[in-house]
Design a protein around this nucleic acid. Sequence first.
DNA 1: ACACAACCGGAGTCCGACTCACCTTATGGA
DNA 2: TCCATAAGGTGAGTCGGACTCCGGTTGTGT
Lengths: 191, 191
Amino acid sequence: MPSSRPLRADARRNREALLTAAREAFLTGDADAHVEEIARRAGVAVGTLYRHFETREALVAEVYRQEVAELCAAPARLLADHAPDEALRRFLLLLVAHSAVGKGMAEALESIMATDSPIFDDARAEMARALDELLAAGVAAGAIRPGVSGRVLLRALGGICGMRAKGWEDDAVRITAILYDGLRLGAASRG
Amino acid sequence: MPSSRPLRADARRNREALLTAAREAFLTGDADAHVEEIARRAGVAVGTLYRHFETREALVAEVYRQEVAELCAAPARLLADHAPDEALRRFLLLLVAHSAVGKGMAEALESIMATDSPIFDDARAEMARALDELLAAGVAAGAIRPGVSGRVLLRALGGICGMRAKGWEDDAVRITAILYDGLRLGAASRG
DNA sequence: ACACAACCGGAGTCCGACTCACCTTATGGA
DNA sequence: TCCATAAGGTGAGTCGGACTCCGGTTGTGT
């Protein structure tokens, strides 16, 4: 919708308010907040919401695109401070922790990772790239098995982020450890 | 609803027809077939559908409960014919193959494995039990790391079964290999 | 200051899951 | 065999939620 003109001041304000309202709604656990509710929180009407976002799903996608972008900045930092396989392990755990910020967030991340909705293509690509970065560094260092793409690993993570049961964090950490051991070359058991 | 009387003949016939119609609808790729459509296929009205199943979801759950029950018969057979870790590996692959019967089926399996809907509790419990059986045998034989429950592994599998992209089967097989290696004691790389 | 394009509001539309008041029929006892 | 009756079936209608549309409002370039 933009790209032609710089977007009028009030329009940009509303768009921002909608994204903020949606993010807050999801963070407070209301993953399927109604569009009316989101619009109300943002102080606009539903028509305005639909002026800025094709569908409810498009709004969700944009919220999490931003979220994911933030997450994708981590690999570079981790690789600077740690050995490649350790960086990978930490990133996987970071992902788990990040999912923990809220049920809504976890649901959205699951969608991003497990489905093929074109809406989430960008977010998926970013995440896959971030994982590729970590995997490539690990392979180069001889610590990680070759032949695993970020896209593939992303799929596996979908299951982890989809978990919402009581105690899911412990489960997630455990699965992450399994995946990590599976990825390492010459892996040994880790309890 | 049953348990009091043996269910009238026409009622049982209709219930059966509904389950068959739903299964066929899902197998032919229409994972979110409308209740009207399912009822039409079964030759009954929606009211009849709702006499037998609380909600649309309950119908879906019953279809896949049967499907899953079938799948859960496999471990015993596999353990009879193979070493525990090999039986586990084959079961994981069987699961992948089973998900391939249709998009609808895969979606339902994902729900069963990744959510906490009480509707799917039974199916989840059965699957977890089947996996526990394989894991326990592997642990007893010293081939599989202890401390991993069927429930936890089930979660990880959710991500695999949720995959629906072109070429997802190759991805699924690869992830399965990673998980399998992660589960084995003293695992070595497998390319 | 003016024109007009962009924006906003919110009642209304559409669609799909689910309900309910009434009709039909299987069933088992006389 | 036939009837009484409760179980079962029907489908128009309700309800809820995403999405649309057009008349009124407001920012922006000249």
